[in-house]
């Protein structure tokens, strides 16, 4: 066998192993009512055959659609905020100033913190007797129960996400910003262009690809949000902060309705594939 093929073989095997087997198993289980508690091992799941009942259950699954809506809400708020903050910070770091390296190293720390640990940090910060309320108390006594209020809990989760992932935007956007030719910017300044004009006509066009990459990466990861959120609220109070991943986790481990979970997983995978194809075509243009 040719060396090139031999070298790529292990990776190919792993990819097949993680995509083909799970998909086939998922497809099989999704057509049944099988669950780990059924008493039969999964190859005998056909004994619980229910055709497409799992799939027809999806449209009426209110908890699912609420979780999806919440996930998208977190996405459309957090990703743009992270982008704007990251861009602003990036612009501050284009020019040199004393202590720049140290400041840079500190600012990118949050994204290196284990997300579960970051979740725990913010869990502590948002306790009703915690530092956040303590800082707010300069305006008068505050005892907000952040994590037990449906909306405030969501706000707290988003604050944690923004804290952790703004550095990623900052890092990527700064890499793009330093690539913008300084002489052009200087020439534009001499010609009397305002900072906003310079940014819009020189910086922005050059940053297009980088901005797209940064937004795409963050949007994908934000859609999967689990660790910080689950540690902070467990999806609660009630189901108030349940996102797609949290909902999946709960019906997998608590409700154990694996036939339905499999159907849902396939549904999500197919929808995401279509969305990705669509997005890539748009981006290619």
């Amino acid at each position: 066998m040719k060396l090139g093929l031999r070298l790529t073989l292990p990776a190919q095997v792993l990819v097949l192993f993680i995509s083909v087997f799970p998909l086939l198993m998922q497809l099989y289980i999704s057509l049944t009512d099988w669950s780990p508690l059924s008493g039969a091992p999964w190859p005998r799941a056909w004994e619980f055959w229910n055709s497409f009942a799992n799939y027809t259950d999806i449209p009426g699954d209110r908890r699912l659609w609420a979780a999806l809506g919440r996930t998208l809400l977190v996405m459309v708020i957090c990703v743009p905020v992270e982008f704007l903050l990251g861009l602003g910070l990036g612009l501050l770091f284009v020019e040199d100033f004393p202590g720049k390296k140290l400041a840079y190293s500190i600012l990118i720390m949050p994204m290196m913190v284990v997300p579960a640990v970051a979740g725990y940090m913010f869990f502590m910060l948002f306790q009703s007797g915690g530092p956040v309320n303590d800082l707010l108390s300069v305006f008068g006594p505050v005892t907000i129960a952040w994590l037990s209020d449906p909306w405030l809990a969501l706000v707290a989760v988003m604050v944690a996400d923004i804290w952790q992932w703004t550095p990623l935007m900052f890092l990527i956007l700064l890499a793009g910003l330093v690539g913008v030719p300084q002489d052009q910017l200087r020439a534009a300044t001499l010609l009397g262009a305002s900072p906003w004009q310079r940014f819009r006509t020189i910086t922005l066009p050059r940053m297009k690809v980088i901005i797209t990459i940064a937004l795409a990466i963050r949007a994908i990861e934000a859609f999967k949000i689990f660790d910080t959120l689950y540690i902070m609220t467990g999806g609660g109070p009630g189901v108030a902060t349940e996102t797609i991943s949290v909902y999946f986790y709960k019906i997998t481990t608590n409700d154990l309705i694996w036939g339905y979970v499999a159907a849902l997983a396939l549904f999500i995978l197919v929808s995401l594939s279509i969305a990705a194809q669509f997005a890539m075509k748009r981006m290619a243009r």
Binding site: T8, M25, T252
Partner: peptide
């Protein structure tokens, strides 16, 4: 170097796109 496995770049990006939660039951 050899141009083998031309399907891998995209296949691996897609692997990253999907929430891990969605393939965990079969795993």
């Amino acid at each position: 170097r050899f141009g083998s496995g031309a399907n891998l770049p995209l296949a691996l990006i897609q692997l990253r796109l999907f929430p891990p939660m969605a393939v965990m039951i079969p795993v």
